[in-house]
């Protein structure tokens, strides 16, 4: 156990991914819901009052699970390469973009691709390419 470092190997990425996929299947089996993080967040604003408690509980669970992993092994590396204005701009873009585009890495990437959704088959390569293009410009062009 002690030589296993979260986030440092292909194996830990694969296991972490499999647990994320398991959570997605469980959320559908137990509550009938898609495990898209941006959609769960957005629903806190617009869903019917009776449809909000599970969303809040899920979003409380997320950091608790990360905290448990940190207590079992070690706190995760969290190195930021962006400065303050970029962090604010990036946050706004991620918030607006995921709401406008009805999903993020989990909703379109994990859940949408799993059910071969046409919209997710378009959205996922689109945001991956936009992200890779942005890194290309920021790191190698500017």
């Amino acid at each position: 156990m002690s030589d296993f470092v979260p986030g440092s190997s292909y194996l830990s990425s694969l296991i972490g991914g499999a647990l994320i996929g398991t959570a997605a299947v469980l959320l559908m089996a137990l509550l009938g819901r898609i495990a898209g993080i941006s959609g769960i967040l957005g629903g806190l604003q617009t869903a019917a009052p009776g449809d909000r408690a599970w969303r809040a509980a899920f979003l409380v669970g997320l950091p608790l699970g990360a905290l448990i992993a940190a207590l079992v092994w070690a706190p995760p590396e969290q190195t930021l390469v962006a400065g303050w204005p970029t962090i604010v701009l990036g946050g706004l873009l991620v918030g607006i973009g995921t709401r406008m585009g009805s999903g993020c890495t989990s909703g379109h990437g994990v859940c949408g691709l799993a059910r071969m959704s046409r919209r997710s088959l378009v959205a996922t390569p689109t945001f991956m390419l936009a992200a890779a293009g942005t890194v290309l410009v920021v790191r190698h062009v500017l």
Partner: peptide, 23 residues
């Protein structure tokens, strides 16, 4: 159930390496 499944998701994210922006 939502709390527990959210925690499993967050635990998986921590193992995956996705929590590190530089990575």
């Amino acid at each position: 159930a939502a709390l527990a499944v959210g925690a499993l998701f967050g635990f998986g994210l921590a193992l995956s390496g996705m929590l590190d922006p530089a990575k």
